[in-house]
């Protein structure tokens, strides 16, 4: 019984990080219908920035979120204006974005490989290998902090979407792009901001994952596959969905790992994806309007 609770705790402490990773992806899809295959590649840019700051200046990986979020936001704005804005009116926009983000991912992977080589990296702050003990249980300190910060950021994002004018506009655009345009929302500007926000989320999750998982440039494919299953489970475009999907799958994967062995734990994600597409293609929280 103790062990069952412990596994639940371990799963939960990973879930928040998955949720933050998935949130950026889902918001970009929700507002702009961009299936951002390059999302994890952008996350890795932030992870490498964090690694660089940690190795060169000893900057704490969690603190470096203060750098990676704005940097990634700006990068997101630039990329959106350069790459996506000009094709926004195309009738085949969605299909084009899959190809575009796919090639973006390849370009990022190549650049990171050239700059940082393909050796596995991770940052190694003290809390990365410590645990918080309470009674018979423990929580990995790094995962715990990362999940707390992820939840705080997600809460901030939620508040932003609920209480600010820009937030209203983003939600309006997520619900119905054309109608939002009709009532005077500058959809192009809103899309740019939303893409930037998505990338800022990728930035924060990249910094946090730098001490939780090793990374090398080509590894982002593994992550984007996992993230896509998370957001499809939750319902693409739904923030709440990505949160629930992330926790559900992280906990399931931890139990699968315990009972059936780690070989099966990555399969949990893809099995869930398969089942949800078969039986409830719109996902758990499937109205893509929801924020």
């Amino acid at each position: 019984m103790t062990q069952m609770v412990q596994i639940f705790l371990l799963g939960m402490s990973l879930g928040g990080v998955y949720a933050l990773m998935a949130a950026g992806l889902t918001i970009v899809f929700g507002v702009m219908r961009i299936v951002n295959i390059a999302h994890a590649a952008f996350m890795f840019i932030a992870a490498y920035i964090t690694y660089f700051l940690f190795q060169s200046f000893g900057v704490d990986p969690i603190l470096s979120i203060l750098v990676t979020m704005p940097v990634m936001y700006l990068l997101g704005v630039v990329v959106y204006r350069l790459v996506f804005a000009r094709i926004a009116d195309s009738s085949r926009f969605a299909e084009l974005t899959v190809l575009l983000t796919f090639s973006l991912a390849l370009v990022i992977e190549g650049l990171l490989g050239a700059m940082f080589t393909n050796i596995y990296r991770s940052t190694n702050p003290r809390y990365a290998t410590d645990a918080i003990l309470f009674g018979n249980f423990y929580l990995p300190e790094g995962q715990f902090y990362a999940t707390l910060i992820s939840l705080a950021l997600l809460g901030g994002l939620w508040l932003f979407l609920r209480t600010t004018r820009t937030g209203y506009a983003i939600r309006a655009a997520m619900q119905n792009r054309t109608a939002a345009q009709v009532v005077g929302v500058d959809v192009s500007r809103i899309s740019t901001i939303a893409f930037g926000l998505g990338m800022a989320m990728a930035g924060a999750s990249g910094s946090l994952s730098s001490f939780l998982f090793t990374f090398f440039p080509g590894k982002h494919w593994e992550w984007v596959a996992i993230l896509l299953s998370l957001i499809v489970l939750g319902g693409m475009g739904s923030l709440l969905g990505s949160l629930v999907g992330a926790f559900a799958l992280a906990v399931s994967a931890a139990y699968v790992s315990y009972f059936y062995g780690p070989t099966w734990s990555p399969i949990t994600f893809f099995l869930a994806l398969f089942l949800i597409l078969m039986f409830r293609p719109r996902g758990l929280f499937g109205k893509p309007m929801e924020a």
């Binding site: 596994i7 371990l10 998982f213 596959a225 790992s257 062995g261 070989t263």
Partner: peptide, 16 residues
């Protein structure tokens, strides 16, 4: 136990 060659990230559950 063995872990898969690709896509495995939950080392802490394994260590547990």
């Amino acid at each position: 136990q063995q872990w898969p060659e690709e896509g495995f990230s939950d080392w802490i559950s394994l260590a547990n």
